[in-house]
Write a protein that binds this DNA or RNA. Structure first.
Lengths: 136, 136
DNA sequence: GCAGGCTATGCAACCGGATTGCATTTCTAC
DNA sequence: GTAGAAATGCAATCCGGTTGCATAGCCTGC
């Protein structure tokens, strides 16, 4: 059994062919992926199916959504231990103004950005600037 | 001359009656304000005018835009020293899942969330959870 | 003070991503 | 194998964001 298939079953998602393909594709990506990107790479698949697959993945804790201020939402595979309806994405994201890619950064954010009294479930952090690759 | 009028002139914005009203309204708010909120409070004003006013304010460094993952963008008056096309909003935001309000937090974010090699212009940080007022 | 020109405003319409309803196909469980 | 549930595909809708264009208002130079 493929690792992607295993992963889906673990998260309580029925591992259809399309879903496995999409998961494998997402796992290959360095940058966060939007719906339009998937559409381009899965021309056989219906736009709506792709949309719903991402939504299912997000709900079940396979990917997390990143709102980076571009036209569309981006998604990246969770590397923290997320599960159904319980994300704890405490890492930062970086959107490069040259290549327009959005990456996940592995540093976890200290909760110290938030004063005492606030209880934090999740943090969305997107930094904007120039990534090392585009800087040269 | 009113302080709001002064502020607009300083930022290079012609201080019309509508703009001063909107600025004064925004300055009163504790939470970030969206277009629909303005529409509700300025029924006399046209939707598009409100939209363009926010856009102008943002471009000229009067307010900053906060994408908090809700349906619409929110805006809050800058308290850092922003000017035309040059925001440096390095503070965090907090969106409460009970009252759904989004607040600016005064703590500035250390740039240390981003590894060496990335150059950061701006940081968008939104934490999600429960605010002290809703916690009780 | 007045004319010309630029800016702000208001109305209508459009756009694109997100989302839903429904019919059909596929898969799972019995 | 069959029934029921889930996934898929198509069409259509929704809504925030945005633009074009005509009109009104303000500021300038003469």
């Amino acid at each position: 059994m493929k690792s992607s298939e295993n992963m889906l079953i673990q998260k309580g998602i029925r591992p259809t062919a399309m879903r496995m393909l999409i998961l494998e594709y997402l796992e290959k990506q360095l940058a966060a992926t939007g719906l339009s990107d998937l559409e381009r790479n899965f021309e056989r698949g219906d736009r709506i199916t792709l949309y719903r697959t991402l939504k299912t993945f997000e709900e079940k804790g396979v990917v997390h959504k990143i709102i980076d201020g571009s036209e569309e939402a981006k998604y990246a595979v969770c590397f923290e231990d997320c599960y159904e309806h319980h994300h704890h994405d405490m890492h930062a994201h970086f959107k490069c103004k040259i290549c327009h890619e959005t990456f996940c950064l592995r540093n976890s954010i200290r909760q110290s950005v938030v004063p005492a009294g606030f209880s934090v479930d999740e943090i969305s952090l997107v930094a904007y600037g120039v990534c090392p690759r585009c800087k040269k």
